[in-house]
């Protein structure tokens, strides 16, 4: 009788699988299906003119992508944009968090204002920054006028457009970073600063020994998050620079969009998007291997 009862019960694994079933089905539909479809496309030459046709070409697209000069240029643009965005967002986020952690009046109001950039959609951020950066309406021009220079300053040029994009992107992401860091800062017992004073630590030593350690894991996590977000960023770039001038700000996402939906080479675009996926996975894995593993162990 006991044995009969036992067989009627589910094992822990079965039970958890049962509970997870709806999610698994959902994930299958929204992740696996598109991913599989994209893989299928990347292995085919798809044409629309003269009727829809899909011809199997094997890994030819992948080989082409690797040899594509425009792809290499876009890869470099993405890397440069990502490095700048992440560095700016993390440093700005840390500084904002340190400032917000100070005792001040109207702290709640200040926090509300500071988080606002994060609440603005990337599309909106793109519009704002294009007004701020372009010659006719930009702050560059305003400053030049104030200094008596009668010439419009357009920073959305071949030389600086990536920096403009990185600043806008960081402006959008930094508040989120700041808030997570602030949450960590709030957990530091104030008596630890007293201990540092008794140990006669300098301000820098205090920062390194008291303030920084509890932030390190969050810093790692957000370096990963902002890296991924920057690499796959599209709408903001689309609105602000449209990949230009020329192809000066054509990141991988922009190029994938152009290949797939403007030039309608869906197979080639799909192959390129797998390259982007590999880049994102590779970067985060390297980050984890070099940095994250150590931080995860220390918490």
């Amino acid at each position: 009788m006991r044995a009969a009862q036992r067989t009627a019960e589910l094992s822990n694994l079965q039970f958890s699988l049962l509970l997870a079933l709806p999610v698994l089905v959902f994930l299958l539909l929204v992740v696996a299906y598109p991913l599989g479809y994209a893989l299928w496309m990347s292995l085919h030459e798809i044409s629309f003119f003269g009727g829809y046709k899909a011809v199997f070409v094997g890994v030819e697209h992948f080989a082409d992508v690797i040899g594509d000069r425009k792809f290499k240029k876009s890869l470099w643009v993405t890397v440069r944009f990502t490095l700048e965005s992440v560095a700016l967002a993390m440093v700005a986020g840390l500084l904002i968090a340190l400032v917000l952690n100070r005792k001040m009046r109207f702290a709640g109001l200040v926090r509300t204002i500071v988080i606002l950039p994060w609440c603005i959609s990337l599309y909106g951020t793109g519009v704002i920054f294009s007004y701020l950066a372009k010659g006719q309406t930009g702050i560059g021009t305003a400053i030049a006028y104030a200094l008596g220079i009668e010439e419009a300053v357009n920073v959305v040029n071949k030389q600086w457009v990536i920096e403009v994009l990185a600043v806008g992107n960081a402006w959008n992401m930094a508040p989120l970073v700041a808030f997570f860091l602030l949450a960590n800062l709030k957990t530091i017992p104030s008596r630890l600063y007293d201990l540092a004073a008794i140990d006669r630590m300098s301000r820098l030593e205090t920062f390194l020994n008291v303030t920084l350690p509890p932030l390190r894991f969050t810093l790692f996590v957000f370096t990963c998050i902002t890296t991924v977000l920057s690499m796959k960023l599209f709408d903001f770039i689309f609105v602000l620079s449209g990949g230009g001038p020329g192809t000066a700000s054509a990141t991988l996402t922009y190029r994938i969009y152009k290949e797939s939906f403007k030039d309608l080479d869906l197979g080639y675009g799909a192959a390129m998007s797998f390259m982007l996926l590999a880049l994102i996975l590779g970067t985060t894995l390297i980050l984890y291997g070099l940095w994250g593993r150590r931080e995860a162990r220390s918490i």
Binding site: P189, R191, D194, L195, N209, V210, P214
Partner: peptide, 11 residues
Amino acid sequence: MVFQSSLLYPH
């Protein structure tokens, strides 16, 4: 000084 909460640097 020894602090009441036996304070040490946690890391």
